[in-house]
Design a protein around this nucleic acid. Sequence first.
DNA 1: CACCAAGATGTTTACGCAAACATGGAACCG
DNA 2: CGGTTCCATGTTTGCGTAAACATCTTGGTG
Lengths: 343, 343
Amino acid sequence: MTSPRGSRPGTARPSMADVARLAGVSSQTVSRVSNGQANVDEATRARVLDAMQTLGYRPNGAARALKSGRFHTIGVIMTTLQTLGNIRTLDAVATEAVHADNAVLLMPIPDPTLRSVSGAYQRLSAQAVDGAVIILEARFLDRAEFALPPGIPVVVIDSGAGPGYTVVDTDQALGARQATAHLLSLGHRRVWHVAGPETSFSAAHRSESWEGTLRAAGIEPPPLLRGDWTAESGYRHGLALGRRDDVTAIFAANDEMALGAMRALHELGRAVPGDVSIVGFDDMDGAASFWPPLTTVRQDFATVGRLSIRKLLDRVADPASPPDTTVVPTDLVIRASTAPPRP
Amino acid sequence: MTSPRGSRPGTARPSMADVARLAGVSSQTVSRVSNGQANVDEATRARVLDAMQTLGYRPNGAARALKSGRFHTIGVIMTTLQTLGNIRTLDAVATEAVHADNAVLLMPIPDPTLRSVSGAYQRLSAQAVDGAVIILEARFLDRAEFALPPGIPVVVIDSGAGPGYTVVDTDQALGARQATAHLLSLGHRRVWHVAGPETSFSAAHRSESWEGTLRAAGIEPPPLLRGDWTAESGYRHGLALGRRDDVTAIFAANDEMALGAMRALHELGRAVPGDVSIVGFDDMDGAASFWPPLTTVRQDFATVGRLSIRKLLDRVADPASPPDTTVVPTDLVIRASTAPPRP
DNA sequence: CACCAAGATGTTTACGCAAACATGGAACCG
DNA sequence: CGGTTCCATGTTTGCGTAAACATCTTGGTG
């Protein structure tokens, strides 16, 4: 294996001038070659490329950015990488950004307080980014004190951020409707709901849609059960629900809570889906291997990521473009955790 | 909510010169204030800060980097965010980097080929980073064609990268030993192993250590079962193992494969842990809520992240510092999926 | 009171790159 | 064959910042 040496002593990073000297041309010609412009003689180009190779020349991003005002980098502000949705979204955004020849600058914020979000903005605007994607439970965006730094285009993912922002989001309401309607169509009379935390807009969208779907079917929704996305909270509610024999269908706002609920039902000796049907949300890795395999709602993170980057780059190119909101549809994935109620 | 306006038309981003003009000082004084240097009169400093506030001045990172040669940014090269370990490690690295006042530039590589890794390097060295953390199954680092770009300090995580690199990694061997020894100490005679893919160094370390532990106990290891980290592959092997009644203990190289194996055993009507005990690796979210809750090996990603950043920044400050390797110990988390074999 | 030290502030310069403009030579035209 | 075009290449300049150096002010000292 080649040895991972650093640069040789005294060998500072070569600049265009160094390359130019070696190739016997002006630095401007090196610049042209470096940027792939057309008006360069083939022989000259070859000589310059050769010199670059020899010296190990790499363009200096800082200088380039200073000159052009563009960094080809976008910032991503997000809470810590704890929830599946955030991770998948980040993955999609990063992949898409790289595809569009942009780098991704990660700005994790330690806790979801207004202060730390603002802090992230400070760092962001001091940093070298052309725009930013905010992956965030958006409660905080609705506060008056919260002002975006001027001059930085932003796209918000996963939120109920008011008008004035460009928003891309999964159609949470559709997903919850699919889940609830699926259980109703199997013949269940009531569908219980283990919701996500109050601070989350996604959770709010899902529970509102669950409630609306039931009401539209002429069914009075049972009391909402508040969880916090963790399997543990699903387990807690699962224990309570499993002890009642009038509970036959549960819609959990994410797969982990569904997992916890199923564990509780197992412990109580209740059959899934025989006694109780369960639907989750996210289609996390492994959901197909839960016991039983979980019926769940799949989000199209890839599309969310692609749209976000595309819209962001549009806004970078034309900051005056009007904000808009886009929702991406979900899919219901039917597996073995749902069945008609016992007659 | 405040309207998310962009900058006013014609209002380019203010520079130090603008601030200086408004405050009636030289731009150098603004620089001093901006960098918190001491030799500035209190009144002057206040006036400058005031002007900064008024104009909404933010230092230009590109110019600063061009001048200082430091970007306060580190690159992270990794395969897509699909595996839990990668995600957790990234989270830890990012958190730690921000803590050290560095930004994190994400460089995902689309597929684990030598070509795309090299491509990432190209982009990296063209980008504005002081150093890089490589989170990677390290097979590729051992290829002769693979040369690091000179002058960029690198720390490698999760690998068997040869000498010459600075490496930080979880003590995979320890974890596998803990898992295997736990099953042996419960009285199991043979421990079967569902391994990760051949291309993974982590997988190799885990299976080698599993084998070594058995041999040290005077037990001939059963044939190794090759998986690919997915629950599906665990399920496949679980079906095969569950059909033999001489199988009482399984060590899966990650939690998802353990999950799949358990599902297979459930389907076959074999009790876990009554008939078969299972140990996983990773302690993923929800592992405590599997049915049954999974005994597993927990990695200390936070420490890995912290050490990586610290070592990397050390190398940035002093590129001549000698490479070394550090391993971080694991913990065995004992839950309900393991028990003594039936007598 | 001349002189000096120390601190505050200003001026110059260079970082590496690329746009804008300048130059020089070859090909083409009537 | 004089003039016009076009293309390859060179020269100048400035992006925003901060180090290095220069200058000015203030107060204290012999």
